[in-house]
Computed example of a mutant assay.
Amino acid sequence: MAPADENRTTGQPGLRERKKRQTRVALSQAAIRLCVLHGWADVTVEQIAAEADVSVRTFRNYFAGKAEAIAASHVERMLRVADDLLARPAGEPLWDSLLHAVLDQFVPPEGSAQQDSAPQNERWRAGVRLMLAEPALAGEIVKANAAAQEELTKAVARRTGTDAERDVYPKLVASVVAAGSAVAVEHSLRAEKPAPLGAILAQVFEQLAAGLPVP
């Protein structure tokens, strides 16, 4: 059996697919970085392609425009959340597993290269807020949320032994996780004083796991 067939059998992406995914991520991160630092209107597809060290033609092979490129990061992150969820210990409570999976993807470990390269100053936070408020991005974010929830639904279904198509439970959990994560990010970005995203996510998931009791 060929290696590519083995990958299809095990459900793991082959080398070609992994490289395509890496290129998508590189382009998406380049689009976010440039738009946050320089403003939506002042960033072109040509600049994004150059930042990711690919051709404009390659960019066009992956995305129709910079809005789609930016939104792709959300889908990729939730794909990794789904992968992390399935890799958690089988006996771990679902909401504990979900919190760990979300934290692993939304909050880089201290001292990691990802954390060190992520600007944490107010200019960056303000740039992210402006970018997310861009009307041209709204439709792509909606589509990205739908795609992300679909993938997370499949992971929750596998984790809980439910059916992703017939059962409400995995769809509901995926929807709540997506909404809770978005609320935490929004709260962190708009807090008067810098608020650690990890602490907010932990608070959100603690309340979700408890059934959202009235304060």
Rank of each mutant, 00 (worst) to 15 (best):
A50G: 01
A90R: 08
Q47S: 07
S112N: 07
L132A: 12
P93R: 09
D84H: 15
Q149A: 15
V75L: 09
R57K: 14
S181E: 02
K193C: 02
D167G: 07
Q149M: 13
R18A: 15
Q29E: 09
A178V: 10
F59T: 03
A50V: 03
P194K: 07
A50Y: 00
L137I: 15
R33L: 14
D53V: 05
L208T: 01
L201K: 03
E51V: 02
L34D: 05
K154G: 07
A174T: 03
E206N: 01
A133W: 00
R18M: 15
R8L: 14
L15H: 12
N121L: 09
A50M: 03
S188D: 00
E17Q: 13
F205P: 02
E92F: 01
T58L: 04
S97H: 04
R57Y: 06
A202N: 01
A191H: 12
F63G: 01
E46K: 15
G14N: 12
L86N: 04
R77K: 05
G65W: 04
A41M: 01
D84L: 13
T153E: 12
R159E: 06
V43C: 02
Q12H: 11
V81A: 06
R16Y: 08
A136S: 13
L130H: 09
V107H: 07
V204L: 00
R166E: 10
G211Q: 15
D104A: 15
E110L: 10
V36F: 11
G65V: 08
V36G: 08
A101W: 09
A155G: 05
A2C: 14
A64M: 03
A147R: 09
A174Y: 09
V45Y: 00
V214E: 07
E192W: 03
D5F: 10
L130R: 11
V142N: 13
W124P: 01
E186V: 08
L34M: 05
E51H: 10
R166I: 11
G65K: 04
R190S: 14
E192I: 01
V54S: 04
R60Q: 12
H100A: 13
A179C: 06
F63L: 00
T23Q: 14
W40N: 03
P3Y: 02
A126P: 07
E151G: 04
Q29G: 14
N145E: 15
A148R: 11
L15S: 06
V176Y: 15
Q115N: 11
V183C: 03
A126V: 09
V156I: 08
L201R: 00
G211F: 15
G11W: 06
V173S: 05
A31E: 11
R123C: 03
P196M: 09
A164Y: 06
E140D: 08
H74P: 00
L15Q: 15
V156G: 07
T153M: 10
F59E: 05
E122C: 06
A67S: 12
Q12W: 10
W95I: 00
A2S: 15
A72S: 05
P3L: 12
L172F: 13
T162I: 05
K66S: 05
M131W: 03
K171T: 02
E140L: 12
F106V: 02
A178N: 13
L201C: 02
L86F: 00
R18K: 13
P119S: 01
H100L: 11
D53Y: 03
Q207S: 11
K171L: 08
D5H: 11
R60N: 07
A72Q: 08
V81P: 00
W124D: 05
G11L: 04
G198D: 10
Q115R: 13
K20P: 15
